[in-house]
Structures are given as C-alpha cells and as structure tokens.
Design a binder for these strands. Structure first.
Lengths: 234, 234
DNA sequence: TGTACATCAGTGAACGCGCGTTCACTGATGTAC
DNA sequence: TGTACATCAGTGAACGCGCGTTCACTGATGTAC
C-alpha cells in the first residue's frame, strides 16, 4: 500500500498544476506563469499551491525537467516505432520527431532551448543529466548507423587539432566510447535541426519558404545521404 | 536650422532610454524592461518617458527595429573591411561577424530571433523589411561568390519539386533575381549559423565542446569549402 | 468495529511590492513680430 | 534688441492591477490501537 489514495490525489493535483502552467505559458509567453492565476483557474486559493511546490521557481524547475524528459521520451518512442534492424530509418525517425515535438510543444522546447524565464535559470546539476539523454540518443543512433554501412562525411573525419583536443575529453557519452568524428557529426546535425526549428518557431522561415517542413526534411535528408545513413526506399 | 538644440536633446534622451532598457534586459532578461525602472535610473518621473514613447510596447518595438538595423550594419561593416575583389573572404567575414555580433549583443539577438516579450510581438510590417536586409546581404554575397568561381553544392542544385514551386515565388530578393538553388543554399547556411549560435547562447554546446568558437569556424569553413567559396590562404 | 489522534489539503486575511498609464499642472526653452 | 506667445519636457498625485509569499486557522482524510 505504498501508493495510497492520498498519494494518488497529490500526484494528480501536481500534474494539474503543471498542465495549467504549460497552457498559460503557451498562451501568454513563458514568463506569464503565475501561481495566483493557476490557483484561480483551479478554483483554489493561491497559498494552497505551496503544498505542491515550495515556490514559483520550484514549479518552473519542475516544468523544465519535465520538458527534457518528455523530449527524450518522444525521441525514444519515435525511434522504437521503427524496426531495430534498420538504424538509418531509426535515425531519420528521431530527427523528424525532433521537429514535430518542437512544433507540437513550443513552450517545452523554449524552456529547454530558450531563455526560460527572466533572471531565472534552472540549476544545471539537474538539467545537465537530462540534456545528456537527447545527445546520448543521437550519438547511439549514429553509432549504430556507422556500424551498418554508414560513414561520417569526410570533413568530420578530419577534425581540426584545436577541436580534437577538447573532444578527447568528452569521448565517453552514456558510458561508451565514441570517436571524435562521430561526436562532431552529431553536434553538427543537432545544430542544423536546432537552427531550422528556432527560425521556424519565430516565423523567420515562412516568409521565404512558406511551409518550412519540406525544407527541414530536405536538409536532414541531404546530410544523412551524404553520410550513407539515409534509409533505402521501401 | 532643421535640427535645433531641442531636437538634439530629444534625440539624445531617446537614445539614453533605449540604452538603459537594453542594459536592463541584459541583466534581468528581456521581459524585465519597465518604464518605471528606466525612469528611476534616469532620475526622472515615469510619465516623463511618455514624451518619447507612446507606451511600453512602443519602446520595445523601437528596440527590436534597432536590433535588426544594428545587425545589418555590423554585417555590412565586416563585409566591407575586406577588399571587394575577394567575395569569398567577404562572405566568410560576414558569417563570422554574425556570431560575434550575437555573442556581443545577446539581448538584441534574442529580440530578433527569440520570443521578444511575453504576449508581445512586433508588428511584422515593420520587422519584415528589416529582416530582409540580412537575408539580402547574404544572398548578394553568395551570388558574387558564385560569379567568381564558387558553386552551389550538388544537393542544393537538385531542389525537390515541392520546394522549387514555392521558391519560384520568392525569386526576387532585394530587387534582383536569384536562382532557387542559391536561395536554398543561403537559407541552409543561415540555419546552421542560427543553430550553433542559439545552442551556444543557452549554454548547450559548452559542456560538449568547451569553447564553441572553433566548432563554429570549422562548420562554416566546411560548408563554404564544399561550395568553393572558401578564401584562398594568403 | 469503534474511538482517539495525527496528518495534511486548503482557507482567508494580510504584507509590501512594482507595474503601466492618466491627468492637470509648472516652468523652462525656443519663435515671431 | 525686446517683448508676447507657443511649444514642450518634466512633475506629482493618483488609478487599479496582479504578483509571491506568510501566517494562524479549519476541517476532512487516513492510521493506530
């Protein structure tokens, strides 16, 4: 009887608070989260929320951590929807899900990759491990793709000296060792996704490209093809 | 006597207000700009500021437009510091300045490329022309580089149909016609710069790469080299 | 099964705060004759 | 060169607002015997 009725209730209320907070952020910007307005919507007095979070910052920290984990989970789900004997297809699925998730949950995306709240930033000892989840996932996917006939494009194999030194220190990701070229390649792909998505989220691509979706798929396709990691057409 | 003493004073005060607003944004986040705190720092009562801006939103709009123009100007200056008979070197200079400017004035960068202020976004009829300045500059630089022996990498020449249709509509930029491949290539380069810079600004690259500078230069170098637009070593 | 007690979710009043914006005004600065 | 007038920067009081957080409390829910 570890999880009694009270614990369940408590958990449900906690979730409700976070859910409303996310919606407020979506509707009025990430800085608009306020305990009073959440309480109002729940039909409860503001001090009641202090039973669940010790301060407004505590709530925000929880939202940020949730966002990290939700992103990682979404990527894992997308990856695992593809048979594990086709690593290229799994990698592609994860790359495409990255954008889909960002567009579906722009607030969570901003909590991770944008200035979360004025003057506030989540303690990095909490966010760093969460951030590693996503990197680790892509590193593993590229690693598998390389093992199955893929190859890092030339330019990432010839790592410049000043970069190589640094990368030697971070060779261990998620417990297993990866060559600097792979890590560099992953970071490069990651930055490209990031760039296209933030430009799209803030409306900079639409005036030029209309729907940015085809461009995203084109760019991802181009880089993966150059790495021999694009899934064969069915 | 078009610009009398009063006009000069007025202009100086307007600049002072914006300068303080920028500093407050830098120190406490972009949402922290408040007329009252600016007035306090200037040793003036809050209503006095209404002589210069008709509301808080008006001030923010001015800051955003300033940011666009400052970025464009910085790029032009960096470009023109390189002899015009070396378009590749000019292009590279502009790409590197893009990051330098973002790091030097992160607030202005966020005003352009991030969620400026909760629930507020500048009227697009004002920002769009300003945004075009930057795009136009890169388009022109790449155009010149192509005319001087550069070439768009293969993958951007073979534009997918669904993209080609849309690009046909925006072929005119800054008054002169550009082929879809060039436009696509420019957007791709832009997105890469964007991605690396936002990741760096929010501290996501440092845990992996240490100083992200070498990585940025490496990536820009790689894409420009592949396009035959990397300046010859002196 | 029934009672006494502990736990804990939520209340209601209050605190001090900074915010954008309005209004009628004062007094200095510039302009026209 | 001197005076009358218009312009305009800035004042001070006031408005109503929503905010995070504290505190002593009530009353329901669960637990131990």
């Amino acid at each position: 009887m570890a999880e009694g009725r009270r614990e369940k209730q408590r958990h449900a209320t906690t979730q409700e608070i976070k859910q409303i907070a996310r919606r407020h952020m979506r509707d009025q910007g990430t800085a608009a989260v306020s305990l009073r307005s959440i309480a109002k919507e729940m039909g409860v007095t503001p001090p009641a929320l202090y039973r669940y979070f010790d301060s407004r910052d505590g709530l925000i920290t929880a939202l940020i951590l949730d966002a990290y984990h939700a992103l990682a989970e979404a990527l894992v789900t997308a990856r695992d929807a593809v048979p594990s004997d086709d690593p290229a297809a799994r990698l592609l699925a994860a790359c495409l899900e990255y954008r889909d998730w960002a567009l579906a949950r722009p607030v969570d995306y901003q909590l991770i990759f944008g200035n979360p709240i004025p003057g506030y930033s989540a303690p990095s000892e909490l966010t760093q491990p969460a951030a590693r989840l996503t990197m680790g996932l892509f590193v593993a996917l590229v690693g598998e793709a390389v093992a199955r006939g893929g190859h890092i494009p030339d330019e990432y194999e010839a790592v410049p000296l000043e970069l190589e030194e640094r990368l030697a220190g971070t060779e261990q990701v998620e417990g297993y060792t990866i060559p600097p070229g792979v890590l560099l390649f992953v970071v490069a792909v990651w930055a490209r996704m990031q760039g296209m998505i933030t430009l799209e989220l803030f409306g900079h691509l639409q005036p030029i490209l209309g729907d940015p979706g085809p461009f995203y798929r084109f760019e991802i396709g181009a880089i993966l093809r150059r790495a021999g990691m694009y899934p064969a057409a069915q």
